[in-house]
Design a protein around this nucleic acid. Structure first.
Lengths: 153, 153
DNA sequence: TATTGTTATACTCTATAACTATA
DNA sequence: TATAGTTATAGAGTATAACAATA
């Protein structure tokens, strides 16, 4: 880590920090829900498509597991995405039973458009923070990234 | 408006920071979805109940607006919560048309149980971070709080 | 006449169970 | 026989439109 060692946070604060941090996250997730465009994509569809862009193609069953929906639900979701031209199935060279799924160019463009809109909104909100808080947030970004990484598992 | 002159954070980094920060948030929200207990409460039910605990009682239409669902959907959701003993309607002294909604003791207990479970999980993840990142995160908590506050509006 | 909330109806998304195809 | 995925059917949650009650 290239972050300078800070000797200012006693270990005893950890539990309390996390309850408050969790409360902050709850409000972020709540705000996230409100920000999503209504008629465009279902919640699971948006996250599945985002995952395909982020992590590359994946097997249908793996997507179902990762998004915590049943296999039939993912079958239908992928079919919907395919009908919308946002994703497509492709066969596995080693196992004919497998349905691999990848995002299309149109799907990637949609994900990027949505991400850009969120980033723009966040940039706007960020700019209203006092400089010291902006700096604190920038310094915590690697930690947030590591934590999000750990959460995904 | 506060001063935009920053001594420590170059303005050129802001846009990039926010794109990355937004990506981090996307992964947090995705992980949040996976963590929620399946058969217990619907997503909107959980957020509505959490809001009632956090911000106190509210009018039905206001809840519908805040959660971005239609008025009939909120009517039915409140009825469901009422049937489960988690929330209850109460009349408005000044306007007989209004349906005010508040959380019950059981509803509050449920919300707190879920929050405690999330905080415990977060504490566990947090403990795996190196001390420098833990400190950076603790230092950024007020900024995250302010940002979540701004996001809610 | 406008506002607050409910009822009626239809649609989307999801789960479970039964099925097909491949290993 | 086990695994990957699909099809069949039913239920939960939501939206729009029409309605009732109060302001």
């Amino acid at each position: 880590m290239d972050i300078t060692q800070t000797a200012g946070a006693p270990a005893g604060d950890t539990a309390l920090d996390c309850a408050e941090f969790s409360a902050v996250l709850e409000r972020f997730v709540s705000a996230w829900r409100r920000f999503s465009v209504p008629g465009e994509l279902s919640s699971t569809a948006a996250f599945t498509l985002g995952r395909l862009v982020r992590d590359g193609s994946s097997r249908l069953t793996e997507l179902a597991t990762l998004e915590h929906v049943s296999q039939p639900a993912m079958t239908q979701l992928v079919s919907r995405l395919e009908a919308q031209g946002l994703a497509e199935r492709f066969s596995d060279p080693g196992d004919a039973r497998v349905a691999n799924v990848r995002v299309t160019t149109a799907g990637q463009a949609l994900v990027e458009r949505r991400r850009a809109a969120r980033a723009a909104r966040l940039t706007q909100l960020f700019s209203t923070l006092p400089p010291a808080q902006q700096a604190a947030l920038a310094a915590a970004l690697p930690a947030l990234d590591a934590l999000a990484d750990a959460s995904a598992r």
